[in-house]
């Protein structure tokens, strides 16, 4: 398989996954904002910026995290390289470059998204249109993952799609959980208070885990359980351990005739997987959740570069 094809498939899946995550962030930020009990209207929007990994870029050009500006920036701003608009654009560019590696339904899922997106450009100022847009986008990404699951031959091409998807998801989950570190509570004494509670709930909602939490932990939302769910519960498909299990499996499945080149990527993925698999959540929290998650984001980034080197995307 052509190395460039692997690269394009990898980025195609990464950007589709990122677009979905951004849509979820915006949905939940809007929802949480409307049930807020104090007057700090910008807090949720700031969280969304932090959780998207766009903080530096955003505050370079904006003074405050006002609702309309954040929505515009994360969803439609062409100057933000990670906006939904650019995710769709880049996904489609990658898909176009590897049309021969895609099934026609996969291509139509990506191309149709790109075409229909033009009709939502004006949605940022209109709450109803925005809601419709975010729902539409999530459905389009589900369609993409659905057709790739059902249509693709189980060969290396498929593995690279999945690696892109789960590498991005691991990054997103780590950033999302870390958002609590950056978000201000009205007062320090509010830890464990109402606002704190709603913020943990919001995190669960972004990854669609409200119900999963109830099933696994019963009872009230507690930070330690949320962290456990998102870090080390193998049953939950957005947890870090789940993502890394997928990454190890797909990396192992790729047929490499150059074991010395790909060894390092595999070693890193398996090593992190083992750490996550046997992680103790009380140790993580006592050692500093923020430091732990920062390290995961860095290692995930490093793994991405290593995969690129190991499979000759870069030469």
């Amino acid at each position: 398989m052509l190395a460039r094809t692997a690269e394009n498939l990898f980025w195609l899946a990464r950007y589709m996954e990122r677009a979905d995550y951004l849509a979820r962030l915006l949905q939940v930020a809007g929802h949480m904002n409307s049930v807020r009990v104090d007057s700090d209207r910008n807090s949720e929007w700031e969280s969304a910026i932090v959780a998207s990994g766009c903080r530096v870029g955003y505050f370079a050009s904006h003074a405050e995290a006002a609702e309309s500006q954040v929505i515009q920036y994360l969803a439609f701003d062409r100057d933000n390289p990670s906006s939904i608009a650019n995710c769709i654009e880049i996904s489609r560019r990658n898909a176009r470059a590897v049309r021969t590696a895609l099934t026609s339904d996969m291509w139509e899922a990506v191309n149709g998204t790109w075409q229909e997106f033009a009709g939502f450009q004006d949605a940022s100022g209109d709450p109803d249109r925005l809601a419709a847009f975010l729902d539409w986008l999530k459905a389009r990404v589900r369609l993409f993952h659905g057709v790739s699951t059902n249509d693709m031959l189980r060969r290396d091409e498929y593995c690279f799609v999945r690696i892109g998807q789960f590498l991005e998801r691991a990054d997103n989950t780590a950033r999302l959980l870390d958002v609590k570190y950056h978000v201000r509570l009205p007062q320090a004494t509010d830890v464990g208070g109402v606002v704190d509670y709603y913020q943990w709930l919001a995190i669960l909602r972004v990854v669609g885990a409200r119900r999963a939490y109830r099933v696994l932990f019963k009872g009230q939302v507690e930070s330690v359980h949320v962290a456990e769910l998102l870090i080390s519960r193998t049953e939950f498909p957005r947890s870090l351990v789940f993502c890394y299990r997928q990454l190890t499996q797909h990396l192992d499945a790729i047929q490499d005739q150059s074991p010395q080149l790909t060894a390092e990527a595999k070693r890193q993925a398996h090593s992190l997987y083992a750490q996550l698999r046997f992680a103790r959540i009380d140790h993580i929290i006592s050692g500093g959740l923020h430091e732990y998650l920062t390290s995961i984001v860095q290692q995930t980034d490093e793994l991405g570069s290593q995969i690129a080197r190991g499979h000759l995307f870069q030469s």
Binding site: A3, A6, Q255, S258, S315
Partner: peptide
């Protein structure tokens, strides 16, 4: 003087 393509397996 031999043409190759770069693949994921060399």
């Amino acid at each position: 003087d031999i043409c190759y393509m770069r693949t994921t397996s060399g």
